[in-house]
Design a protein around this nucleic acid. Structure first.
Lengths: 232, 232
DNA sequence: TAGATTGTTAATCGATTAACAATC
DNA sequence: TAGATTGTTAATCGATTAACAATC
């Protein structure tokens, strides 16, 4: 809780009065780097580091030191001139910014290959997420438990979502069912959806959507590979 | 093979002589949108559309029509003024650009929860990827087959990679093993790595790396959700 | 003190958008 | 022809980088 010199970061009064340095909405790219900083900071702590610097973080992640400082400055003053950043303190700050300092209950719809893998994925818990229920339409799966998580009939989504005050949901159904699944999630009061189905879905403007298409990631790789070969 | 009017796109001579309109390297963001265009075009074809337009593609995907045209113009002239783009033709062109018009053999290292799901993921095959071998260090898994793919001892990676002329590999091992896995892949001649381990890994400059961190995707969602609530 | 490193400003760079002649 | 839509240029917008006074 105490900084290296026994005080709080820089001019604390100022830091607290203004919520963040720049105005306007935070660029999406900044937020995605924030998650990378967090992950790297947690790694550094496991390796025994007490403090780090913008140049160290930048070097590992492939960003410039200026960019690291600028990104963090959107949200406040977290560093100590001449010293750097205190890892534990910055982890705490970034978690607060991302909203993962508290635990989020999450539900998942679709218990196929991918859904099962996500149910068992340890990384979610480690970052503050807990899958509290799974849903499917296949009668043979309903009632079973996987990784300690019960599989419910999709029809019970509204009921269970309300019961646990669920805000976040993961779509792991086939592409053909993704849009209707999203609509059911929205109807059940969810406001954030992580979509693994390889299809574009649309949600109301008050709902956040993040899409992850695994095949697209491989496509990005092939493009980069063939163009690298072409250069040399 | 023939365009709507029986001819090839616009001034074909020009289109063929210059490889792409703008100079310098292609922005990464453009390439990732290219994959989204491809996915949407394939969807449109399944729905029976023959042609589409930059404004239709843009509307569905949330981009401006100008951006769609600009992105495509990096690589050549694919459209017909007054008509739009012929879906089948544009699909073909984008696949060629991304390098997925031919099939890529892929290997995967790590047959845990996530690795097994990826082995069974149909989306890879559909986009031109084929997982030809899996690797693990767990003796109980070695020799087994999952989804028709044999699991080999990781020690045999160089041998099998050479045999199948493998360029692409997927890392699905725990974070602690990711860096050494990457190094073994590079030593085995792979030049593109898709990393699902939640850790930053480093590879030589002649190797391409794409990282997917599932927990980070959820973090992006929580940020967006809490800041949306804050606005209103 | 000298050395290290921050937060922040101004300058640079790149990406998106608007507009429009050319085309079908 | 009139309407639709492209490819491309110029203008706008936003994001990254370089530089540096302030700080420890």
């Amino acid at each position: 809780m105490t900084a290296p010199n026994g005080r709080t970061p820089m001019s604390q009064q100022k830091s607290k009065s203004r919520h963040h340095g720049s105005c306007g909405p935070i660029p999406k790219a900044v937020v995605s780097r924030l998650s990378l900083y967090l992950r790297e900071l947690q790694h550094l702590v496991r390796e025994g580091h007490e403090t780090t610097s913008s140049s160290q973080l930048g070097k590992v992640l492939g960003f410039s030191d200026a960019q690291v400082r600028k990104d963090l400055a959107y949200f406040g003053q977290f560093g100590y001139p001449g010293i750097g950043y205190r890892c534990a303190e910055l982890i705490d700050a970034i978690k607060r910014i991302l909203g993962t300092h508290r635990q989020w209950p999450v539900i998942i719809v679709g218990v196929g290959n991918l859904g099962r893998a996500l149910l068992g994925y340890k990384g979610f818990q480690q970052q503050g997420f807990r899958i509290v229920a799974a849903f499917d339409v296949d009668a043979r799966k309903i009632g079973r438990r996987i990784e300690g998580v019960e599989i419910f009939d999709l029809a019970r989504l509204p009921e269970i979502a309300e019961q646990h005050n669920i805000k976040l949901g993961i779509i792991a159904v086939p592409a053909s069912a993704a849009q209707t699944t999203a609509e059911k999630m929205v109807a059940a009061g969810l406001v954030g959806i992580l979509n693994f189905a390889p299809v574009t879905i649309s949600v109301p403007p008050n709902v956040s959507l993040v899409g992850v298409d695994l095949a697209i990631q491989l496509e990005q790789l092939t493009f980069s590979v063939i163009n690298r070969l072409a250069e040399t």
